[in-house]
Design a protein around this nucleic acid. Structure first.
Lengths: 165, 165
DNA sequence: GCAATACTGTATGGCACCGTACAGTATGTG
DNA sequence: CACATACTGTACGGTGCCATACAGTATTGC
């Protein structure tokens, strides 16, 4: 397989950088989720609370963009947090379409504990990885994101219905 | 419009390397999925076909481990591929518990096209990223995986039921 | 003013995956 | 041999996310 440029150094043929990346991402989510369960939260919820606690009242669409999930999903996430009294929805006088999602007192208190968990876990994850290595990692991934975005945007031929059934 | 979460201003305690990593992983999956839809496959299915085509008949548990998903899920994936005649299940005489999942002729042909798509996309993703940068990326992520594994394994306090409800 | 367009949040159905529990089979131990 | 234990694959319910379609509201053009 791969008659072209078989780097024998470059890891096993199958699971390569992209797969490693996806596996690592799954582990990141698992690790944060595990550490956040004592607070009754998952990573998405914690990120939302942290964001609102730091940047103030935000519309749902903005939150969806910042957290990287869809507008539909963000609604149910907020629903649950609102039921638990951690955030609240406030109308905005000048635009009656939107809700402003704001932190409550309970939410602010929880945000402190979230930040604590976050700091502890991050410190553990940094073991044996230098600062410039982390920055290089971030740089390469940003570059990768650009390439991925253009690759996804380049979907030329037959998106609608695959030749199945 | 670039919801990339990586301005150094935008990186306060919250969305940092870990978030970038997860967002990148999502994009990787999306990119492969988009390129594979013309073949009527998603990334998981394509990986399974590629693995079986290269390494021969394999039990479901081994496949689940190699693809990084659960034993339950791998069954339904194989079901669909089998229905389409891309793989087949063969019994193993010396162990009647297991199925050996093997590639069919149709599957082998499709595997060739999968490898093609894979090579093309990988080439696009490598743009502007040097070889040693990729290797450094892989190294850091491997190290990160180790730290993540130990972090997950270190879940001492209250896993069973969160203090809710 | 008034229609056309764009945007926000919601409802719905679907997908991929997980965790648990279970039946069938192999393997070890008395 | 009988029994307990370990392993394989499957069934089931639950979760997080997406894509689409929709109603309500703002904004733009005339």
């Amino acid at each position: 397989m791969s008659n072209l440029t078989t780097h024998e150094l470059d890891s096993p043929p199958w699971l390569r950088v992209e797969s490693t990346l996806m596996a690592t991402a799954r582990l990141v989510r698992s690790a944060f989720d595990v550490r956040l369960t004592p607070l009754g939260l998952n990573l998405t919820q914690a990120s939302l609370i942290g964001y609102v606690a730091e940047f103030g009242a935000t519309t749902q669409s903005e939150l969806a963009d910042h957290l990287g999930i869809g507008r539909a999903q963000i609604g149910s996430v907020i629903d649950r947090l609102q039921t638990r009294g951690l955030v609240e929805r406030r109308p905005r006088p000048d635009d009656r379409r939107v809700w402003l999602v704001a932190i409550t007192d309970d939410g602010r208190e929880l945000a402190g504990r979230i930040a604590e968990v976050d700091a502890v876990l991050r410190a553990e994850l940094r073991r044996g990885i230098g600062r410039e290595e982390r920055q290089a990692l971030a740089w390469v991934m940003t570059r990768l994101q650009q390439n991925l975005a253009t690759a996804i945007a380049t979907t030329p031929p037959c998106p609608p219905t695959p030749p199945e059934r």
